[in-house]
Design a protein around this nucleic acid. Sequence first.
RNA 1: GCCGAAGUGGCGGAAUUGGUAGACGCGCUGGACUCAAAAUCCAGUUUGGGAUAACCAAGUGCCGGUUCGAGCCCGGCCUUCGGUACCA
Length: 822
Amino acid sequence: MKYPFSEVEKKWRDFWEAEEIYKTDLSNDEKALYSLVMFIYPSGAKTHIGHWYNYAPTDSWARFKKMQGFNVFEPIGYDAFGLPAENYAIKTGVHPKDSTMKNIADIREQLKGMGCMYDWSKELTTCVPEYYKWNQWLFIQLYKKGLAYRKAAPVNWCPSCKTVLANEQVQADGTCERCDTMVERKNLTQWFFKITEYADELLDGLKKIDWPEKTKTMQENWIGKSFGTEVTFKVDGSDEEIKVFTTRPDTLFGVTYVVLAPEHELVQKLVKPEFADDANKYIDSVKSLSEIERTSTVKEKTGVPIGAYAINPVNGEKVPVWIADYALVTYGTGCVMAVPAHDERDFEFATKFNLPIRKVILKEGTNPDEELKEAFTGIGTMINSGQFDGLRSDEGKEKISDWLEEKGFGTRRINYRLRDWLISRQRYWGTPIPVVYCDNCGEVLIPEKDLPVELPYEVDFKPDGASPLASNEDFVNVACPKCGAPAKRDVDTMDTFVDSSWYYLRYLSPHYSNGMFDSGLANKWTPVHKYVGGAEHATMHLLYARFIYKFLRDLGLVESDEPFQSLVHQGTITNDGTKMSKSKGNVVNPGDFVEKYGADVFRMYLMFMGPYELGGDWNDKGIVGVDRFVQRSYNLFTNNKDLLKRVKDADVYDLEKLNDEEKIVYKKVNRTIAKFENEVDNFRFNTAVAALMELLNDLTKYFDKVSDEVKLYVLRRYAVMLAPLAPHLGEECGALLGAEGSVFVNPPKFKADEKALVQENAIIAVQVNGKMRAKLELPVDSGEATVKDAAFADSKVKQHTEGKTIVREIYVKNRIYNIVVK
RNA sequence: GCCGAAGUGGCGGAAUUGGUAGACGCGCUGGACUCAAAAUCCAGUUUGGGAUAACCAAGUGCCGGUUCGAGCCCGGCCUUCGGUACCA
């Protein structure tokens, strides 16, 4: 009989919901396990394969843990603010709130169809005042600690649309995606969170968490801690000073020019009138370049001199000041001391513009007069460096730094590549920033008792040069909370990464009104035990969330140091090699497959496709294989209906008392249990499914000759293994055997029978010169002498060794016997 | 460009610690069942040579290295993917 998946799946989902099986008792933290997936972004695409690939296997893991006796909390929610809803509104006129709420309603139904054990009583949405009120509260706390501040920062500005563009909206050639106008960089005063204050702790914390090495490496590189020295260059004929950050003070005598970022504030002060035209032209030409283009090491170097000269503090030498796009205002001091002989970029630049290249570090075994063909960046002996000549350059680095500090020309400094978190967005669909600007009092926080600052519904979100909120006068005009004078609200909204930096804490008490979240519960349930989401979040979201968690700890709201104890990345599912997205029109709809095969088959196929961390290109060819497996499993149970009511099985069987087929089946099921547990526990679902398929193959082959008792023993275990991967089917199979209720409530715990796992024989490969020539089946742990005799008794081994000198023999127990001949 | 990954049969993939390359599944080929088809079941299936066998040789993106032995370790490339601070 064909497995009636749609009836069965509906039946069990209704049962789970009616019995509230997945409602977690959060007050009970004994064996508490918080299994978290990255919440869903409710854009127009609804749920796609990528969501299923993230959520369904993680749910299988969570179910597996629940069946092992853990008190599992598995929530879901909606990351509901953000750009796409607003773009959709601009295009269609549908209000972001309306489209988002509708999408959420649709997505909720789709999520329920996946059959995950979400605790729906803890569902959360970020775009409601009940949630975003606490973003504002968080902002205020950061502000009070000096960790939220304003400064100027560039945005992408389309002069034709009169709007700020996201990087995503700027095309590869630097034009606007809507109107193809060249996009410019424009400076705006914006809010920042001072994540750099936590840079060291964010680095150190990586040592304590169980995360993929590659993610930790990426975060480490992203933070980019470097030790160096800040050196002050006086400017010839001016009171201004140029401060440069360098990790190579040992090359200071090799400086032949100084580079400022074109946007650097000093440029306009230092540029000589006769250089101003060219400099400004250059500054304009750089405006349309992205940072990636600017820092590219293959792009031709560009720059112009500004007529000023800097004085090298170590030798009093005057060197020209240039501006060049390879210097960035966002890194270090925005000024670079150029040492062409010992820096690749400087070398290229100096070669192009005929600037002097002075060797100050001598590579071992080379001649001081030899011309450099490329920059030498290694360690060597210092030359042309005054009193430091003859020192090894790594030692000289310290000596020069000491000298600079002594003379007041510089100080040792630690620099980070990490920049503060810019949270202002000139958009509508986000959390309003709880600040007003008053002519008398300056920037004033909204008092906590007046939160939330609600996002008004009535705004014109069509671009007209200002943030959309500026168009709502009732919102903008407000009395200053301090002095009562007329004041104006901040009309920007917050980056949505603010919402996602603490949502997992809110899940525990989504309607809590006395604070951001219930601290008591948070301390019972965090750090989150397992966090599963895409690797694309490796640096930004995961770094912001760690930062905010540490800040909340410093406020006393949580006790631990890290939010996510263990992290897993599912891979990306692509379609024809590219990431699925609605704009590309290559989204594969899971609904079609669910309708045809059922949710269980679909989610099991996603798990079977390949390694979870790898993802891969979407291909539905293999799904019929999983469907066949499900059909065969179902038939196996219908053929053995109500066994539980008819016979009684033992907990353990004595292998000696079983017939041959029973022995095979008994050993196989126990080996499968051992393998299966190890695989699922480590998110290796593909091999877990394969193990069950192997088991089923053996069962179909040998079950004829197996007693009902042993059959029951095997099938009970089989149903329990099936349940986390295919929850509806697992329940149904259990019920077919005659079990009552849900297998996820007080599930039977089956351990593999160690005796059944013991191997009697090992197959040993015999190699001659590394080539496999024979296989020997010998008792496990046979000694070398026994194996040697057996090996040389083999005719093929004889054939390949006769008449040759045996040089060496290597024996690896139970694995290999290698004979090396000449 | 920079940072981080990945590359194995016709296809998805397995090989968990440097030790039998190709588990499991798809597809394909042949067979059984059927009037026939579908479904199902059974057998075969890395490539080349050989007679279908025995057997021989080659083989894990490319080039080189370490080792008795490399898909796995090291060096250098190529291709694809993720991120690159306003997509989330």
